[in-house]
C-alpha cells in the first residue's frame, strides 16, 4: 500500500472537479466540452483502479478498460458529429444548434 485510499479519492475528486469546471466554462465550445468529459471519465477510472488496488480484485480494472473502450467509441462518434455540424453551420458553438427547441 503506497498511499491510503483516501488520498487517491481526494486526487480523483480534484480531477473530477476540474473536469466539471472545464465543461462549464467552455460550455459553448463543443470540443472543449468533450475534453472536459474526458477528464471526468479519467477521474472515474482512477477511482476504479484505486478500488481494485485496495481490495486486490481485478473487477475495477476491467471496468476501467470498459470505460476506455466506451470513451473511444463515444469520442469518435462525437467528433464525427462535430465535423458534420461544422460542415452545416461552420461553427462549433453548441448554442447555434437549436432547431429542436420549443417554439
Amino acid at each position: 500500500m503506497i498511499v491510503p485510499l483516501s488520498h487517491l479519492l481526494v486526487f480523483a475528486s480534484v480531477l473530477f472537479a476540474l473536469g466539471v469546471i472545464c465543461v462549464l466554462i467552455w460550455r459553448t465550445n463543443v470540443i472543449m466540452v468533450l475534453i472536459g468529459i474526458e477528464i471526468m471519465l479519467n477521474a472515474a477510472m482512477l477511482v476504479f483502479v484505486a478500488g481494485s488496488y485496495q481490495w486486490g480484485r481485478a473487477d475495477g480494472q476491467v471496468f476501467a478498460l470498459m470505460i476506455i473502450a466506451m470513451t473511444s467509441a463515444e469520442v469518435s462518434l462525437a467528433l464525427a458529429m462535430v465535423v458534420y455540424l461544422h460542415r452545416r453551420k461552420n461553427t462549433v458553438n453548441v448554442d447555434e444548434f437549436r432547431q429542436l427547441r420549443d417554439r
Binding site: 488496488y53 480494472q61 476501467a64 478498460l65 476506455i68
Partner: peptide, 13 residues
C-alpha cells in the same frame, strides 16, 4: 495507474 498495480490499464491509457 502503473503504481497502483494496473500495468495494463496504464498501457491502454
Amino acid at each position: 495507474f502503473y503504481l497502483l498495480a494496473a500495468p495494463l490499464i496504464a498501457v491502454f491509457e
